[in-house]
């Protein structure tokens, strides 16, 4: 019972949180996640290219 009142209290209150990521139906979260994947792919491509270059030099 106590818990329920507490949650209700929290839900009713307009608590200031980091709302930037939650606006527009949380679409920004999806943007950040896809950017993480995209940039790690770029980094991976870049590293592979560097590795091939170094193999080329050693040969």
């Amino acid at each position: 019972m106590m818990f329920n009142f507490f949650t209700l209290f929290i839900l009713l209150q307009d608590v200031a949180m980091a709302d930037a990521m939650r606006s527009n139906g949380k679409i920004f979260v999806v943007v950040v996640i896809s950017l993480i994947i995209l940039f790690s792919l770029f980094l991976y491509l870049y590293r592979i290219e560097k590795k091939i270059e170094s193999i080329k030099k050693n040969k």
Partner: peptide, 18 residues
């Protein structure tokens, strides 16, 4: 190629959703 590709795809993956 590389900088332009990174720039355009970053734009795509943000503007595409927003």
């Amino acid at each position: 190629i590389k900088p332009l590709c990174i720039l355009l795809l970053t734009y795509t993956f943000t503007a595409g959703y927003l």
